[in-house]
Design a protein around this nucleic acid. Structure first.
Length: 126
RNA sequence: ACUGCAAAUCGGCCUACCGCUCUUUCGGGGGAGGAAAGUCCAGACAGCAUAGAGCACCGCACCGUUCGCAAGCACGGGUGUUGAGGGAGGAAUUCCUUGGCAACAGCAAGUGUCACAGAAAAUAACCGCUCCGAUUUAUCGGUGUAAGGGUGAAAAUGUGAGGUAAGAGCUCACGUGUUCCGGUGGUAACAUCGGAAUGGGACAAACCUUGCGGGCUGCAAGACCAAAUAGGUCAGGAUCUAAGAGUUGCUCGCUCUUUCCUGAUGGGUAGGUUGCAUAGAUAAAUGGUAGGCUAAAACAGGAUCUGGCUUACGGGUUUGCACAAAAC
RNA sequence: CGGGGUGUAGCUUAGCCCGGUUAAAGUGCGCGUCUGGGGGGCGCGAGAGCGGUGGUUCGAAUCCACUCACCCCGA
């Protein structure tokens, strides 16, 4: 079934959707991640995600890539509950995770944060 | 052996589970670096421009070889300079070995600058020296001179002799620097020998002069496909007795434009394909967790490609050089 | 990807083009003084060797080369 996959359909690629998300989307913070979300009419997947790490805070490409990979892994391993919920209620969302911390996080700490983010998204939209 | 220095080189591996990207004949296969970086140079490639020549602007500047338009880079060589070691000598100095650096064409084309100090920083004259004149016999004025003094980063070719009122390349000898000519060695830069002329302070990373080279812009270049909306062109139709223009002396009529509908068409935007690759996308792929080797491994992530340069870097390996005293 | 700019006292700037004597100013800091005290005024003083390395030159913040850091612009 691919419960822990993260393929292309689940990534936010369209420039139009990205612009709409940053213009009209709502957001909340769960340090060190800022989450933006926007309901979509119809889509290929129940949740399409975009991960961003600002260049101003992390000068080196290696650092930015590493943080993006960590966030992607934690999301990939914890998202199944959220996707199931939205799939049952036929909701479609565009998501953006922006890293606002100043240091490179540890995997275990980020897992805790990501679980709280998933919970919040579940309760907010339920 | 250890340690230090220099150079070259390597740039974590294995196992399990969960994942990413490209490709596929659906079995599978490929998947970041020595610097991928900085963007300091250069080229390939692409578009535009282009009769020929000159000027401006920019770049380069000892010689040879590979590549290249010229440079750069690499290797080798010359010259200069600087550090270290050694030899000769009383010293100045000079020779040899070795390492670093050099934007090493031209101030003898012109212009400009040379602070402070000093008389004077490039048509030299303060003290001094010489002669002449005056005189109050302390000195003053004039002429000549550049040996000596002092200043400075730098003071007008060094030593000796002749010469002179005193002196001076003023003359001569021996040196020395520069330029030219010739011989020898070398592909050449250059080295060396002989002769002639000459004595021009430094600075061109000062303006500049000479020689050589350079068209401009860059893959977000460029090529192709192309929705919606608005407008363009063409064709057909409708509305007309509405408005304007043309035709005409005037009216009618005719033609065109304005309005609406339908169809076609070219340009072009979003977007896509290509350019684009034996890694290769287009919000952009190499990761995460656990364990072991052993301790966490360092610097660090491709966006058109290639070569050079520079910078960052834990640890390992190899080679070369140095290695005091003591103990064995 | 391409292009441009800036580094000088704690901070903000000048000086750089065209090299020269002790690197200048404002603000901040310290001390003194005026005031009953604060604020403010006045006076005095300390504080940088010019981002780094190398070169040219008698001499470099200034000229040149390389390099490090930061900022901005185009699409």
């Amino acid at each position: 079934m691919g419960r822990y996959t993260f393929g292309k359909a689940e990534k936010l690629c369209s420039k139009l959707e990205i612009d709409a998300l940053f213009k009209d989307g709502r957001s909340f913070k769960e340090f060190p991640i800022r989450v933006m979300y926007l309901s979509l009419e119809d889509s290929s997947a129940n949740a399409k995600l975009l991960i961003s790490v600002p260049k101003k805070r992390f000068k080196k490409a290696v650092s930015r890539n590493h943080i993006k990979r960590l966030i992607r892994e934690t999301y990939r391993l914890n998202k199944s509950e959220l996707i199931e919920n939205w799939h049952n209620s036929e909701k479609y969302f565009a998501l953006a995770f922006v890293y606002i911390g100043n240091e490179i996080p540890e995997f275990d700490d980020l897992t805790v944060v990501m679980k709280r983010v998933i919970d919040k998204l579940n309760t907010l939209e339920a």
